[in-house]
């Protein structure tokens, strides 16, 4: 009898502490979207926010759960790109849109089949590192060169293969490819990937003020956009 009672008490204590644990952890892990996040916010929700921003190419620096300046800047870039009020504060609308866009793609019956936009980010980084400061159309043109190489027999058959091909892009050789792209470069990457080509089939480009490379100058030129000459 005695043993039975103490067992019951032990069980009760365990149940209560388990419930307490659960309640506490739920409070600690409030889900993203429960409240407005802004500069100074901290916690798991902020970490979730940062992860999702990074997934879409809006890099926040360190994913540390602290809503600092760079997170606010990333939120602003995201808002600008999505046509939301660009205030750097992650309110209801911003978070809803972020959650929607970071969702996986589905089949018609709703089965998840993964993300379908991974190459956009790599292309955006290539465009940003090679052509930041160029007009928007000049950035689309750089992306279009990569896309044209994809279809050209002399080049590799994947976007990563083309961008990381040794000596193909100077920004890869000097590490600038790892810089964080801005929203213009991301937009230009998307436009180039959807088939837009302001260059008329170019596969090379060079800055005439900086290049003495004989091979580059020997290619048939198509046109000049911004500082770059685009060639066949």
């Amino acid at each position: 009898m005695q043993a039975d009672r103490s067992e019951k008490r032990l069980f009760r204590i365990m149940a209560v502490s388990l419930a307490l644990c659960l309640a506490l952890s739920a409070a600690g892990h409030a889900a993203l979207g429960d409240r407005t996040l802004s500069q100074g916010s901290k916690g798991a929700e902020v970490k979730d926010l940062q992860k999702r921003l990074t997934q879409l190419g809006y890099q926040v620096g360190k994913v540390d759960g602290i809503y600092g300046k760079s997170t606010a800047a990333a939120v602003t870039r995201f808002q600008k790109d999505r046509g939301l009020k660009a205030d750097g504060i992650a309110g209801e609308k911003t978070i809803k849109e972020l959650i929607r866009l970071t969702g996986e793609s589905t089949t018609s019956s709703g089965k998840k089949v993964g993300y379908k936009n991974s190459d956009v980010q790599l292309l955006a980084r290539c465009i940003y590192s090679e052509g930041r400061g160029e007009p928007y159309i000049g950035q689309v043109a750089i992306g279009a060169c990569v896309m044209n190489r994809l279809k050209h027999p002399s080049f590799p058959n994947t976007i990563a293969g083309i961008i990381y091909q040794p000596q193909a892009f100077s920004a890869v050789a000097d590490g600038q490819i790892n810089l964080q792209p801005d929203e213009t470069a991301i937009k230009a990457a998307r436009e180039a990937m959807s088939g837009s080509d302001p260059t008329g089939g170019a596969i090379y480009y060079f800055n005439p003020a900086k290049t003495k490379n004989k091979f580059m100058w020997s290619r048939p030129q198509i046109k000049k956009i911004g500082k770059h000459i685009f060639t066949r």
Binding site: P156, N157, G161, I162, P166, A168, Y204
Partner: peptide, 12 residues
């Protein structure tokens, strides 16, 4: 093609 394009190169 993938292997060829990952070999080191000195110019384009």
């Amino acid at each position: 093609v993938a292997k060829l394009s990952s070999l080191p190169a000195d110019e384009v």
